[in-house]
Design a protein around this nucleic acid. Structure first.
Lengths: 364, 364
DNA sequence: TTGAAAGCGCTAACAC
DNA sequence: GTGTTAGCGCTTTCAA
């Protein structure tokens, strides 16, 4: 049989009551020891700790929850866990959570705001200590913010919470797009198309802004095409645009997926990179440096992003615990232009003002 | 507004007591309705359901746990969540879990058996309904099996639980390796090196077996090199082996990571694929068909793997709930050789025996 | 500094 | 079919 013990009573997991009995103290003393209350005499504490050790006692979280405490869990909501970028974030978050004694509840929102909120509520009802979310909520959807006002610690990353200036960690999307555009321009391109997949998300919006502004500032005409959802879509767009008389000589791809589609379509149509078409993609990826030609990208630091967000969340949880009401933090992380070969031979750009003294883009 | 009550008391989340009062029934009736006990008169049930609806009542999981019930959570342990393969599995698992009313606790074991077990215990102490694990435990480590004997539903996938013939979902690693080897042989190669990264895991072991057996069966001499952990390691191995007089003309790479390193090293050393060196890699990946030349791979179906494992777990949970003691299941999933161009021009292989009537490799 | 009592929200076991 | 009682293991409150 399963538990195979000889005695009639199966070896249940010990409770504070048993610890108390063994240590010959009251329940409360044990509880105090467990929770590091200061008012326990060291000698008493030692006795209790010995008993805990001996019995292999571990706190019953359910009981603590029932008394209104928060669970030693954090929730993580991302649009798509099978996306390498978010997977990397999730990994980092989970790692840090564990290091701090938390378990991690992970959910893919599938980019559905309703699902996202529903799962957030579920997590809240499970009394998670905090929530980390890459939100898919559109502007005007304040539900998560309201959840936050409920007292739940929430930190947004990659995208800010709509209608909230609360804790968030973002990436310099605009600057990245500007740098990518500038890189293309400095390679002599003036017809630069900007294409992407998702129309509505915050990062894409920002990148389009960066691109557009920089094009205009450079006296060039911006051309943005969004909603290229499939390989076929990309292929069609590409062939039509490539046939047009005033065809672009370079493409700035707004996200990883589109870059991959473009790579594929370019190969299918036998358009050479960079001779016939230069290409820069937002989002770096494992194989970007290995494909030929190696793809120039704007690299975002997923690990750093997640690390900062988690740090913020832990601070927020601590503060909430202490009853402190700190002002929200907003962190902007730099991106890094990974210059490879998809825009032509490397150039050594003449610095506009001064050669930069340091080059401390933190990216991993 | 949500709770908008004028009264001084904040709108706490309602309990069954309040539902009972509103519905003018006893506590137990409410409990029975919630848990779908059959012995409730339909009319009564309706009343209760109305009250539940009206109050927006939701079960307090902590209280249920305290009464010894299992949590509506499942645990997932993988070696490395930032690995695209496992991330895809995690995504699928989470998706199915949600569809069945479970939340998912996700942990990366970082390939550390102790950490893996410690986290599994933590999950068990949180009363998860079941555990899905890609174990990193070496042969002889029976700890997870013991946890299983404790009554916890555990399903292993990708790798079996050491010392246990319990529920697991695996992939035809051996067959895949054989097919890859055969593919290389049928392209005229006889010096085929087999290289990989991790020495000890079950899938690698199986693949090496498949390769070795098939080489010997074909009258060829197998050469296996493991422990190629870094790009540098791969590069060194490659250059030394390429310089040797009796150099291999083809490489069978045992895992994704090694394939990527090889691709990189091959490029660095200006060794052409497939002219100078043919290459087949175990594990398909997004860009395998896009790089040049497109890489021939053995594709494993991560989604199907996770789907089957989760299905098994749900069944196991159900059975445990009903007190049924079903015999363990072992599922073997087919792999699919994705023939692209890294072994030379496509061949139409002369079938050894008969042309196969169906080609129903299920792979996505 | 310590302990006793009360009860968090729920369900199993038993009454009716 | 339905209600009552008795805790699950813990922490908060208050008294000693």
């Amino acid at each position: 049989m399963l538990g195979g013990s000889m005695s009639k009573s199966e070896p249940r997991t010990p409770t504070i009551r048993e610890v108390a009995k063994l240590a010959r103290v009251g329940l409360m003393t044990v509880s105090r020891v467990i929770n590091n209350h200061p008012s326990v005499r060291p000698s008493t504490r030692k006795k209790v700790e010995a008993a805990i050790e001996q019995l292999g006692y571990r706190q019953n979280e359910a009981a603590r929850l029932l008394k209104g405490q928060r669970a030693k869990m954090i929730g993580l909501i991302v649009p798509d866990l099978s996306d390498a970028f978010f997977a990397s974030c999730a990994h980092t978050v989970q790692h840090m959570a564990r290091a701090h004694g938390y378990m991690t509840l992970v959910v893919s929102s599938e980019r559905d705001p309703d699902l996202e909120f529903q799962q957030a509520e579920l997590m809240a009802s499970r009394k998670v200590s905090g929530l980390l979310v890459v939100t898919s909520a559109p502007r005007g959807d304040d539900r998560l913010r309201e959840l936050q006002n409920t007292g739940l610690a929430i930190v947004a990353f990659d995208r800010p919470l709509p209608g909230s200036d609360a804790d968030c960690v973002l990436v310099e999307n605009r600057v990245g797009a500007e740098e990518a555009t500038q890189h293309l321009i400095s390679h002599g391109h003036s017809h630069i198309a900007c294409v992407g997949y998702d129309e509505k998300t915050y990062p894409i919006h920002e990148r389009v802004l960066g691109y557009t502004h920089h094009m205009i500032a450079s006296g060039l005409k911006p051309t943005v095409t969004l909603g290229l959802l499939t390989l076929d879509g990309v292929r069609q767009w590409l062939s039509s645009v490539f046939a047009s008389k005033n065809r672009p000589t370079a493409i700035f791809s707004l996200n990883h997926r589109t870059s991959v589609f473009l790579l594929q379509a370019l190969a299918d149509l036998q358009i050479r990179i960079p001779e016939d078409m230069a290409l820069v993609g937002f989002d770096d990826f494992d194989l970007a440096g290995i494909i030929s030609p190696p793809l120039t990208t704007v690299a975002q630091p997923p690990i750093e992003l997640a690390r900062r967000a988690m740090t913020l969340l832990l601070e927020r949880i601590q503060k909430a615990h202490d009853g402190v009401d700190a002002s929200p933090a907003k962190i902007l992380l730099p991106v890094k232009l990974m210059i490879r070969a998809s825009c032509g031979p490397h150039e050594s750009p003449a610095p506009a003002v001064l050669p930069p003294p340091t080059d401390d883009h933190n990216n991993r």
